[in-house]
Design a protein around this nucleic acid. Structure first.
Lengths: 137, 137
DNA sequence: TAAAGTAATCGGAATGGTTCCGAATTAAAG
DNA sequence: CTTTAATTCGGAACCATTCCGATTACTTTA
């Protein structure tokens, strides 16, 4: 997802164009790993040294809700990254060392044979964890 | 997994047979939903009113490490349940309201076509979330 | 472009789940 | 029965996250 697409979504939902949101989005636009709120805090320090965690978490939650960011969890920490540009639904391998990802084009939901017709499905999660080539060395 | 099997594993790894472990295992043996540490605390109150969270978490971590319990995470909370008796590897639908589960026999790892040969795979997660028939009403 | 209204931000305090710590207790081995 | 090491307790500490009241910054409207 590009910066412009993100802003388009935000403005459409009546969120204002603020300096902090621009800083956050720019950061995620360049990073392509999953990062924590603390990572974000450190990374945007030169742009806004006094940015509060309240602001970070509040906006990350908004971005996540609107589908601008992807969110997952590892060892009790929340991780965020820019939503992939790839148009069709897919999943990821996630490096547990650096947070980098590799897309997995297929979705296991297509192959689930169990009868869940009486169940109300809200979502699903498929992720492969490990170490990427760079982090193995 | 039965109580006896759990104890067999624990003793084999030189963990002692204590009252608290027995209480915890008995509880998980009867419950078949994913529960939080707080749920455990409340549930075992009559057996040991003064049981500390330290004891609960410490033992749950041991059980989880030894494969006696299954562990997952939902909305920032850790959830535990007795490891399934089903012998072959599988996954679960998890009710976000009551924590009950339904097995999904297939594993998406069998169908992943992406080349991950240069990656070191540590694990994977496939879960479907939603509401079970009982909780829909 | 000034004023008004509302959203967003800040700093710090509060929260909630989890872990740590030293002292006391308990299980297993000798 | 003693000894030794693991386990437990209670409470403090920790850490990520959220809440709060006061302040600041957008956007709209005139």
């Amino acid at each position: 997802m590009t910066l412009d697409e993100a802003w388009e979504i935000l403005l459409k939902h009546d969120y204002k164009r603020t300096k902090n949101r621009e800083i956050l989005l720019r950061f995620f636009d360049e990073a392509d790993n999953y990062v924590t709120a603390m990572d974000v805090r450190v990374a945007v320090e030169q742009d806004n040294p006094g940015i509060s965690f309240d602001t970070i978490y509040r906006n990350l939650a908004v971005f996540s809700k609107l589908g601008i960011l992807d969110e997952t969890e590892l060892n009790g920490e929340r991780l965020f990254r820019m939503q992939c540009a790839i148009d069709h639904h897919h999943h990821h391998f996630i490096c547990t060392t650096c947070g980098s990802t590799k897309p997995i084009p297929s979705c296991p939901m297509d192959m689930v044979t169990v009868n869940l017709s009486e169940y109300e499905i809200e979502g699903h999660k498929f992720e492969i964890y490990g170490r990427c080539p760079k982090c193995i060395e």
